[in-house]
Amino acid sequence: MTSRHDSLRSFRSAYLDYLEGARNEPPVVEDLPAAQRGAARAFIESITAARGVDPYASRPSIEQLLARPRQTDDRVGDLADMLRDHLRTAVDSRTLVTPDVAATAAGLASAWVIQARGMRLRIVPEAESSELSYTIANRAEDIAQVFSAFPDSHAVLYATIGERPLGAVVDRGDVSNAIETPSGERRAPRLRRTVVDAATACEEWFIGMIPDLEPASAPEVQLPTTVEPVLDPLHLATEVVREVSTAGSRARIEAKRDSWGAFGVQEAQLLAVIVEAAQDEPLPEAVYRAHVDKLAEIAA
């Protein structure tokens, strides 16, 4: 009995020496008598499993745990920042990524909204280590609620947070149960697209949706303030005379057709003089009358 205890005690002591770094190799269980090997293995299993467990730690209750603040919200923001930077470079320099205030207020899963190339993509984040291919089955209902609440959402980016975020873009149809053919079995929702890094998933989706139909940068729009404020009097007068002449040519009255239809360059030039004079300063009536009389004389 004493011998049995001694050999097992020696084994344990040797194993502790090994754990403490005093031995390079652990003692061999098979060197013990057969009757003691089970106890030796149980000891190794016990001490291996116990290492790292704090025997003094007191676990909080489930109520206390659920009341703790979340640790992940900052990291969702990091994901949004990363996506904005990437999409502005790769897809659309005007990409906006904004907190999804409406979804938050409604208690929905969407955390951020991406707007680029006229499309709207909502982000539903998932914990870093999640296997999205599997967790989609559990989150499909949440994503479906996002689509239902926001009909203007073109798709949802289902992505993990963390240092290397992964993701896949989910379409409306992806979050519905499907009936398989030919078996007719009901299949739970699943990701149709491959899970890749979140930035690539977004970029490929945007480019796939709007290939090259819409330019990434719109042409410069000339605002009213940049238009030349001074009219060209000759151009204006020519246009007016042309309209009068055209109207005269179509007149049924022969006299009108002859007179109006004959209006041309001379009348336009004289009319331009009147307009130009009126642009610089108020045109005295006497001067105006003189111009009109001259114009009537030429036309006659």
């Binding site: 754990l19 770094g21 290492r51 790292g52 704090d54 730690a57 676990r59 745990l65």
Partner: peptide, 19 residues
């Protein structure tokens, strides 16, 4: 929850060989 707590302790703060 007890076992989850122990699992997390072991992963975050493991005790390794060599003291």
């Amino acid at each position: 929850l007890d076992v989850m707590f122990a699992t997390i302790q072991k992963t975050l703060f493991p005790r390794r060989r060599g003291g």
